[in-house]
């Protein structure tokens, strides 16, 4: 199967000597939503900038639907739309002109109907004759998305699209992302709101210090790396833990009224049965219990910490 983007041994060393990417290999599947997660300075934006041609790679190759980004840059770039993290806009232009400019820049003939549809979809139609200067931050973000969509890209990069935008725009944005994906657009997004990635992404790639730590299906990642925790509400508070329970990974909370037990869902035995039996033997009665799956955020934090 041809990938939307194939990255092989891609590296970037800046003139200052700083290595932003260490030989990254990554295949992005056609039509998927890939969330690229990583702490600040991990290399997410560098990776995106390399693929889009904004900076030059130091080594390695990238192909976009089989087109090399350097040898065959025209064909490669035509397929890509980019919404960068920073609000880079032509302040003194009108919304309409700037969106049409973007379309022309990518070699497409003017298409009023399409630009109108994009602006309407992003609730920008009313503002089409306004100068960008007069728009709010959230509106400027919408303009940047409109610019990226103006040439009908097959692949869309959204670098921190929801940073500093209000709830309504975030909701609109994710709706748009879903619609685009339904129409066959491959979407690569970076976000700090991991719950968003958890909600929308098909696969997750975690990058830290210029290295790709993990790439996997979101559900698979959560199953493999996710831990569960069992919370036991006790009928009566207990003092120190009895000797018989010392073998369990237990935490005592709420003045001895609550026990937290963490277990690995992948382990052959979770130990829940024996824990409950041992509690019973120690004369500790359980009033209520609850289990929780760790979130993508917990997984992300533990992965990044492990890599330190």
């Amino acid at each position: 199967m041809q990938h939307a983007i194939s990255i092989s041994n891609l590296s970037k060393v800046y003139d200052s000597g700083f290595t932003a990417l260490h030989g990254v290999d990554l295949d992005i599947r056609d039509g998927e939503i890939l969330a690229l997660l990583g702490p600040n300075g991990a290399g997410k934006t560098t990776l995106i900038s390399l693929i889009c041609g904004i900076i030059n790679p130091s080594g390695g190759t990238v192909t976009v639907k089989g087109h090399d980004i350097i040898k065959d840059y025209r064909a490669a770039r035509k397929l890509i739309g980019l919404v960068p993290q920073e609000l880079h806009v032509e302040t003194f232009e009108t919304v309409w002109d700037t969106v049409n400019y973007s379309r022309g820049l990518f070699g497409k003939k003017p298409d009023r109907a399409l630009c109108e549809r994009i602006l309407k979809e992003l609730s920008l139609w009313e503002k089409k004759d306004n100068k960008i200067l007069q728009l709010s931050g959230g509106m400027k973000r919408r303009v940047m998305i409109a610019k990226a969509l103006a040439h009908e890209p097959n692949i869309l990069f959204l670098d921190e699209p929801t940073a500093g935008v209000d709830v309504e725009l975030r909701k609109d944005m994710w709706q748009l992302v879903r619609r685009l994906r339904a129409s066959g657009v491959t979407i690569i997004l970076t976000t700090h709101y991991i719950e968003e990635a958890e909600e929308i992404a098909d696969r997750v790639a975690v990058i830290n210090k210029g290295r790709l730590i993990v790439v996997d299906e979101k559900t698979e990642l959560m199953r493999k790396l996710g831990k569960k925790q069992l919370t036991l509400e006790l009928s009566n508070g207990i003092g120190p833990l009895p000797e018989t329970l010392s073998g369990y990974d237990l935490e005592v909370e709420d003045d001895g009224r609550r026990l937290i037990y963490r277990y690995d869902t992948q382990a052959g035995r979770t130990g829940i049965g024996s824990l409950l039996a041992d509690l019973n033997r120690a004369g500790i009665s359980v009033k209520d219990l609850d289990t929780q799956q760790s979130s993508l955020e917990d997984i992300f934090v533990s992965l990044v910490e492990e890599a330190r």
Binding site: C52, I54, Y73, R74, A75, I80, P84, H88
Partner: peptide
């Protein structure tokens, strides 16, 4: 200066 050069650099233009 304003950063909009990103678009020209990422466009299919020589």
């Amino acid at each position: 200066f304003v950063g909009t050069i990103y678009e020209v650099l990422s466009a299919p233009v020589s």
